[in-house]
Design a protein around this nucleic acid. Structure first.
Lengths: 193, 193
DNA sequence: TGTACATCAGTGAACGCGCGTTCACTGATGTAC
DNA sequence: TGTACATCAGTGAACGCGCGTTCACTGATGTAC
């Protein structure tokens, strides 16, 4: 059958957001194209009408995930009281909500080592996305120069990602809570005095 | 043929250290039992004379990796000048050598999200290993109480792991250097003043 | 207005491949008598 | 000392399975005349 352009865009969109969630929840290796397509209501053969390869989908899914999480975080930062923006960002990032929802959360904490293992060409595209992502947060960082602010973002987000990632390994909810609490205190003290 | 107990122990050892390296380099999903066994000079069918399952190997490989990296780091810390132990640990962790050798480096930075995705039973065993690992570093942490020192380790290592992990995504060696340099300065300043 | 043809998202079957796991078998050595 | 048997690390083949990718085909709609 012939489908409308909007129909195609909708399918593309569904595949993309399902992949963005599934990759973060289970890892890209454990998220097969067949599984993703089935969850979206299509057959796996149709995948290649939308993406050139699984790596291509991977990059687009990472882009989508970064865009969504970045947008969400900028939103809460903008509606925070004067001078509380960065504090709000840190509190949201290091929250139990974020810890318990890897599928809609930070790409670094969910896929960090997988990003590092991708072939150079893929990694370069992801690097560009991360550069872009960082730009969004410049307005909320303390510091005199642009370079100074960027340096802080390059440190703050990966550090928080590491803490969140390891807190997810813990099986005890109280332990998790405790780790996040201590981390919030630390990062707010260091970056958002 | 009948093999000596030492022969079996040697095979076990070879499989274990090959897996510990391969898992960290390529991820556990991408490191097949067949591949690991072949690299060790055996056929994949022989695997189950040594381990109950792949997850069982995974836990043992993580244990091995944590033991080796922990031991190495404690060693340099012990031979550091008075009061420089923690500084030495941070510098070693956030070095280009560590960044470029994930196969012999920190489990958190190489496998963090995979640890978090394992079934509860596996995660609990890994959690215990991480608890054990942390004990080694207590003597080098500043702080009055044991709890205070532990809280700092729980923050420092995951944070550094996140930074190292994301520095590995970067394709430009100078960028990587810069990130590590800034991170070393930050963590030394915060934890090993 | 009516007919002929082009488009192309999605299907369904197939490709070769490696996965984790099981199992009957091998055969050199160790143990029992 | 010599013989019979048990052990068990490692082999090789097989199990069912899902993987990423390709491709001939379908058929409703859009376009050309």
């Amino acid at each position: 059958m012939r489908y409308s352009p909007e129909h195609k865009a909708q399918s593309h969109e569904k595949i993309l957001s399902m992949a963005a969630r599934s990759f973060r929840e289970r890892g890209a290796d454990a998220s097969g194209i067949g599984t993703v397509m089935t969850k979206v209501g299509l057959k796996k053969g149709g995948f290649y009408r939308h993406f050139k390869s699984k790596d291509d989908l991977f990059v687009e899914a990472v882009a989508r995930a970064l865009d969504e999480t970045g947008r969400g975080m900028v939103e809460v930062a903008k509606s925070a009281p004067e001078g509380e923006a960065l504090r709000t960002i840190i509190e949201r990032y290091l929250s139990m909500g974020h810890l318990n929802s890897p599928g809609t959360g930070c790409v670094r904490a969910a896929l960090g080592p997988e990003l590092a293992r991708k072939p150079i060409a893929v990694r370069r595209r992801i690097e560009a996305l991360l550069d872009e992502y960082r730009e969004r947060f410049l307005p909320f960082m303390p510091g005199q120069t642009r370079e100074e602010k960027q340096a802080k973002i390059r440190l703050l987000f990966p550090s928080m990602a590491g803490v969140l990632m390891m807190a997810r390994v813990s099986s005890d909810p109280e332990r998790r809570e405790q780790i996040l609490r201590e981390a919030r205190k630390f990062f707010i003290n260091c970056f958002a005095e």
